[in-house]
Each structure stands twice: as C-alpha cells, then as structure tokens.
Amino acid sequence: MSANQISLRPAKKTDAWVMSAIHIAAIKALPATLYTEKELFAWRNYRDQPDGSNILKSMKLETCWVAIERDVVIGFASFIVDELIGLYVHPKSQGKGIGRALVQHFCDEATEEGIDEVITTASLYAEGFYLRLGFTAIQRTPHYLRSGIVVPVTKMSKTLATTPKEI
C-alpha cells in the first residue's frame, strides 16, 4: 500500500451508513469457527442491511476516523482517549495495511496526548492481528453485546513511545 492509495480523515455524519455497511460486511465474512452464527448475527446488531443510526450515536462519544481509497470509505476506527473501541475494514480491502494504518493513527493520536499505553478489546479473530502490531494479550474476558449475548474477547494493551506534550 502506498500513501497515494489510501488516506485517513475524521469521519463525517454522512459516512455513518457506509461505516455500518462495512461493520456488517466484515462480520458476515467471518467463519463461524470462533463464535457461533447466533453470536456473529448479534454482533452485527441483527442486521443484514446498513443502518447508520447506531454509528451516529457512537460518533457523539468516540473519535472516528475513516480510511479512504479512491474517494470510497473502506474502513474505520473509533477510539476514546487511550482505548481503541472498534476497527473494521471491508473484506474486499483487507490485507492491504488499512487496519494497520488506522491502528497506527490511533497510537499516534494517543502519543500526541502524552499517553504511554493504549488498550483494546479484540475479538478472537483479531487477536493475532493486534499481536503482530505489538499489542500484548492481558486476559480473556466476557464482552456483552447490545443484545445481551456474551462473547469471549481478549483485553490487550500496547506500550507507546511517548513524546511529552508541549506546554
């Protein structure tokens, strides 16, 4: 992936529908090996069609960034201060370094704020991805989906090389 092929920018309200579509597509592409079909369906909020309303609610609380390729949103990340809340890349765009770029942006933002450690809660599918990016597994923990279904996830952290924030 070259810098000319992908760019990152803050998400806009008009991105919510496509972000929802990416969320659904990414989860639909997962095999039912680590989670059941029922759990995967609940994870995508029982949706087969995009609905940006949940994402719009999240955008009020979280910082959301999107990855753009040829003027098309192909992935997004959301975070609050030192915690990466969500990271999704459309299945057709996976394996191109987009998720890595979004995580790096999150880490860079945290570093600029003087944060020396970040955390995330990784699905069992994403655990290896985060390990390759320098995260460490802390513990397996239950994650409560909006539906009330509980799925296992891995709490992870990464120590950052901090640069003191200028005063």
Rank of each mutant, 00 (worst) to 15 (best):
E69D: 08
V103R: 01
A77G: 06
D15C: 10
S157E: 05
D71P: 01
E112T: 10
I68R: 04
T162A: 14
I138V: 15
T136Q: 13
L61W: 15
P91I: 07
S2R: 12
F79Q: 03
V153E: 11
L124V: 10
L87D: 02
H105M: 05
F129V: 00
I80R: 13
E69C: 15
I55C: 02
K12Q: 13
T163F: 15
Q5C: 07
E83G: 06
M59S: 13
A21Q: 08
E83R: 06
R146V: 02
Q139K: 14
H143M: 08
K28V: 05
D116Y: 10
V18G: 00
P31K: 09
R132Y: 00
L145V: 01
G148M: 00
P164D: 03
E166N: 08
A42T: 06
S2V: 12
F79R: 08
K12V: 03
Y46V: 03
D108C: 13
E113S: 13
S7L: 13
K28W: 05
N4F: 06
N45E: 13
L34A: 00
K28F: 01
I138G: 02
R132S: 11
L145F: 09
F106H: 06
L133C: 05
C107V: 02
K60A: 14
G114P: 11
N45K: 06
K155E: 10
K96C: 04
Y144M: 13
K158P: 05
R140H: 09
V89Y: 03
W43T: 07
D108P: 10
T36G: 14
S157Q: 11
L34T: 00
A67R: 11
S157I: 04
K165F: 07
H23Q: 13
N45G: 03
Y35I: 01
L8S: 12
K92Y: 07
I85C: 04
T159A: 02
I68A: 10
V151N: 01
R70E: 12
G128V: 13
Y46P: 11
M156T: 10
K155M: 14
S93G: 08
E39L: 00
T162E: 14
I24V: 14
L131G: 04
G86C: 09
G97F: 06
R44C: 01
L40F: 05
T121S: 15
I55D: 01
W43C: 08
A122N: 01
P164M: 04
R9F: 07
V151E: 02
L8Q: 08
D108A: 14
F135Y: 12
K155N: 08
A16L: 06
S157M: 07
K165H: 09
P91L: 01
K60M: 10
A110T: 06
A16F: 13
P91C: 07
F106R: 01
L56D: 04
P31Y: 04
V18E: 02
G128A: 15
A161C: 15
A137Y: 11
K38S: 12
K60W: 08
T121D: 15
I55R: 09
L40P: 06
L145E: 02
A42S: 09
A137L: 07
L160R: 09
S93W: 04
M1L: 05
Y130E: 03
H23D: 12
Y125K: 06
L145T: 03
Q104S: 07
P142T: 02
G148A: 01
W43F: 09
A110K: 01
G134F: 03
L145W: 07
V73Y: 04
E166D: 03
P10E: 11
R100I: 00
E69M: 15
E39G: 07
T33Q: 01
